[in-house]
């Protein structure tokens, strides 16, 4: 079984103090650490588990600048057999449509049974690339998938609806499956595992190999464009309890008592 998995390299903003870059169209990213999108950690793990269960090969692909090589190397250490890095500086500022298009052009020439992606990336919160890629390649797709089995050339999977409800679906292969977080337990990667794959070449792929030109990627190729970013107003919000840990804890306990729950 040929499995392709798509990995996104994103700035980790979950705990960082963020500020707006000059021009007002993005945040300042220079001081942020970059990492594999959390959802994609589950995607690569699922790809590797499918390979281990049904026998096959995993190819990891990312449209990402040079620095992201370490992420793809980590994917090899996680069990991918090969990895490709698609990049040209003209990709800077691309939306989900452009990324899906680049991935589609690359994948078009390679036979596959399943493409595994994350459902969503935490930087753009788009949730666009998986479904778009499926449509561009002419194969069905599914998102928020939380369990997968393969039988008789079909994928049987469970996908998440709201409020603890799921639906079980059967889908023809080849297909794109975008996973939900929590569907597996991403393995721990040791430094030794990374060293073991140090000599594997990670080819870089440029625009000409995709049959795309600069005008078709980046801002000019995108279908939506960020005009302005801003931090949400702090608003009314909570009454912030000040003081030492001791004092704040005492005040909180008092509030609980006032509310009659103690």
């Amino acid at each position: 079984m040929k499995i392709i998995t798509c990995m996104k390299w994103i700035p980790d903003t979950s705990e960082a103090e963020l500020s707006i870059a000059s021009g007002g169209k993005d945040i300042k990213k220079d001081d942020l650490d970059y990492d594999l999108n959390d959802w994609d950690r589950f995607a690569i793990e699922e790809a590797v588990q499918l390979k281990e269960k049904y026998d096959g090969e995993v190819t990891a692909i990312s449209v990402a600048p040079e620095d992201a090589e370490e992420m793809l190397r980590e994917c090899l250490a996680r069990g991918a057999d090969e990895a490709f890095q698609i990049w040209n500086d003209a990709f800077e500022g691309s939306d989900g449509f452009v990324i899906a298009r680049a991935l589609a052009e690359f994948i078009r020439k390679r036979p596959f049974d399943i493409i595994v992606t994350g459902t969503l990336a935490e930087d753009d919160g788009g949730g666009q690339v998986g479904g778009m890629l499926g449509a561009m390649l002419g194969v069905p797709s599914a998102t928020l998938v939380s369990r997968i089995e393969i039988a008789d050339g079909k994928a049987r999977f469970r996908r998440e609806l709201e409020g603890g409800l799921y639906e079980n679906i059967e889908m023809e292969l080849p297909a794109v499956i975008s996973v939900a977080t929590g569907l597996n337990e991403p393995r721990f990667v040791s430094i030794r595992a990374v060293r073991k794959v140090a000599s594997i070449d990670i080819p870089t792929v440029d625009l000409d190999e995709l049959g795309l030109d600069e005008s078709q990627v980046g801002h000019s190729g995108s279908r939506i464009s960020v005009e302005k970013v801003f931090l949400p107003p702090e608003g009314e919000g909570a009454e912030i309890i000040k003081g030492s840990t001791e004092e704040a804890a005492a005040r909180l306990a008092e509030i609980l008592k006032e509310k009659g729950v103690l």
């Binding site: 700035p11 903003t13 979950s14 963020l18 707006i20 945040i27 935490e122 930087d123 753009d124 919160g125 995108s222 279908r223 939506i224 464009s225 960020v226 005009e227 302005k228 970013v229 801003f230 931090l231 949400p232």
Partner: peptide, 16 residues
């Protein structure tokens, strides 16, 4: 209007 970067930043997005 959308939210980006772990829902911490607001973005105004055009359809070009």
């Amino acid at each position: 209007l959308r939210q980006i970067y772990s829902y911490k930043v607001n973005a105004l997005v055009s359809f070009k």
